[in-house]
Design a protein around this nucleic acid. Sequence first.
DNA 1: GCCATTTGTTGACATATCGCACGAATTGGC
DNA 2: GCCAATTCGTGCGATATGTCAACAAATGGC
Lengths: 247, 247
Amino acid sequence: MIGLAKGLAVIETFTAETPRQSITEVARRTGLDRATARRCLLTLAHHGYAEYDGKYFTLTPRVLRLGTACLATMPLPQLVQPLLDALSERIGQSSSVSILDADEIVYVARAAQRKVFSIALMPGSRLPAYCTSMGRVLLAALPAQQVRERLARGDLAPRTPRTLTDIDAIMLEVDRARTQGFAVIDQEVECGLCSIAVPVHNAHGQTVAALNVGVSAFDMPARDLPVAFLPALNQLQARLAGMLRCL
Amino acid sequence: MIGLAKGLAVIETFTAETPRQSITEVARRTGLDRATARRCLLTLAHHGYAEYDGKYFTLTPRVLRLGTACLATMPLPQLVQPLLDALSERIGQSSSVSILDADEIVYVARAAQRKVFSIALMPGSRLPAYCTSMGRVLLAALPAQQVRERLARGDLAPRTPRTLTDIDAIMLEVDRARTQGFAVIDQEVECGLCSIAVPVHNAHGQTVAALNVGVSAFDMPARDLPVAFLPALNQLQARLAGMLRCL
DNA sequence: GCCATTTGTTGACATATCGCACGAATTGGC
DNA sequence: GCCAATTCGTGCGATATGTCAACAAATGGC
């Protein structure tokens, strides 16, 4: 079933920077032969996943079905959304739940209170794990060796002047998250944004997700986050652990 | 490239009702041979799109990449989100933007003010077109014959006691949306929810999306929606038309 | 306007896939 | 614990696909 893998690779070459691609572009990006890329694209178009104007291909909303099928598959979003809403309203700040995929975190639920992020975060959105509070908490659940591998795979481009880019420095923070049971980020992913995250465990004690609160750095310095929000986060963490028993 | 199409069909069989499926289940749903379904699933697992515990397959968050690649592809969400936020705050109600995919509308942006929906709507969420205000506005942009075809394809199961299920009755409402320039829904998609939608045009005058406001039926009867919200909707509609000139 | 370069398309051959059928393993009922 | 009924895994032949190369068309520089 080699065709399937190639087709998926073709779909993944369409990004915000390259929404419209020619056959040759896709071939270059995937490493496929031009003829093969062409067949992939024509198949996608024939089945309604892409459109072709004779020169460029574009993905259609139909592709969203593939992803949302997966989101709908997860019981986590529906379970946590109301709890997240309540938490967010009580503390007056945005909170989110995410899971780990390779070297990225994927938002599965979010309750936005204010717009501190310049980018719009929503379920399905991705951020690199190495510079986010939820990412560090999720990485902390893995064996150290695997964390290094994942970090080495993704690029550690600094997103702000404060972003840690040295693998050893990040490993230290991940270790700290493991021993402390939470992680704090001070404007590493975006200037003016601090956040604190805790892991969410299932019945077996495995970390399956992370839960965080993000605040504006102007409202509160990063060092004050634990005293301000850890109690609320731990409370929700415990409730979620109870609910995830059935999974 | 028939393998690609089959693989995509396999992915789409995973829904909220069937998050974990065996080989035979997938084969039944797709109409594929068990051996073929097995190869598809193993390929998906091998490339990180699925997981296999020896008995059941589950999709992984990696699949979300396929969909979000498409969402990121569209400039529309980023363009409209801030405008939607402003509108929503000004009128104190939830507003959304969606596009048409076959017989469904797909949310691409949303600014939630209150929780009137029992289901969580977010970018990527889908609702049937025939019983939503945005759906009727989007259908109104198509030739009548094509509308009938799309309606006939999807099932017109009533979602509330007030849902229109007769094709001719729905066609009448679609026609009305076309001549009026807007559509109003009175608790057809969910009890207690009314909404009003207008089309969003690009530079060529083509309808590319729909914009709506949803309110609780207890706050305001459906017949009052036009006077209350049409001015604000039309204003945003005009601004969007101007912004979409570059597309 | 011409030539060099890149891109899109088509045909042929080697190869991997599909669907079928069969045996092994699992499940479920009694 | 046994038997019936599914379900799972796997060869095999026919078929369709991927790759490669050559050709046609388009692009772009000068």
